[in-house]
Design a protein around this nucleic acid. Sequence first.
DNA 1: CCTTTGAGTATCCAAAAGTAACTAAATACC
DNA 2: GGTATTTAGTTACTTTTGGATACTCAAAGG
Lengths: 127, 127
Amino acid sequence: MKKKLEDYEFSKACPIRNVLDRFNDKWSMLVILLLGEHKGPMRFNELAQTIGDISQKMLTVTLRTLEADGMVHRKHYPQIPPRVEYELTELGKSLLPHINGLTQWALKNYDAITKSRKKFSAKKQFA
Amino acid sequence: MKKKLEDYEFSKACPIRNVLDRFNDKWSMLVILLLGEHKGPMRFNELAQTIGDISQKMLTVTLRTLEADGMVHRKHYPQIPPRVEYELTELGKSLLPHINGLTQWALKNYDAITKSRKKFSAKKQFA
DNA sequence: CCTTTGAGTATCCAAAAGTAACTAAATACC
DNA sequence: GGTATTTAGTTACTTTTGGATACTCAAAGG
């Protein structure tokens, strides 16, 4: 049973990187947050309008990925026009506190980060 | 003082999205984690080798961005060959517990997610 | 002189993400 | 009965991001 080199690729072998890479896209965390805040399931367009600046394609891709990971449940009503509802699974809900930890941190440190960015780009003018 | 439409773009107006977007790149969280775990500062090549599969370019870009945000401190020794050390600032350290929350969650739920992914891709064969 | 060393740049190419336009099928409108 | 509307997506195309590779700088070692 010889193992191939790529089996050892860090990003695939490491559970942390394997899982966290999934949240490194632009929309996953936001979708989970919104589904978590909302009472009951949300429909596709409801999500799209709440986010505002997401394209239909990216919302589709994001939701499919979250569904594949077992974070979101997709309920499709076979009617026309279509009706599809999304809601967090238990797994998805269990992630909420951690994402909220990040958002709380972001709110608290927003000013500090903004100031730091300004200082840094000002400094670069003289470098 | 008329305000332009783009001033209201959700992603720029919203502190949460503004800050969290920064961690949506491929390497920032990992670099913060490694700097957080390590005793004392780390040198550029030390980081590169620990990560293993990051290019010099991306490590440079990632570190510069983290420095601009005030998450990482860069200490440059003017000697040849150069010596540059990186370590977390207090701001960077304050983020660690939240990232660790995510990684603990990732470890705990790695199996569930892997299984869900397999089930999902199997299902798609028959769709 | 020629090589090595550490921390990067420069250039070019591939992959991922994003945009705008298009689709399906039933219903509502005129 | 032809046309517009509605929802949840595709398709085709463009832009942004990431990555491979080679190159730089200046001193020390042989």
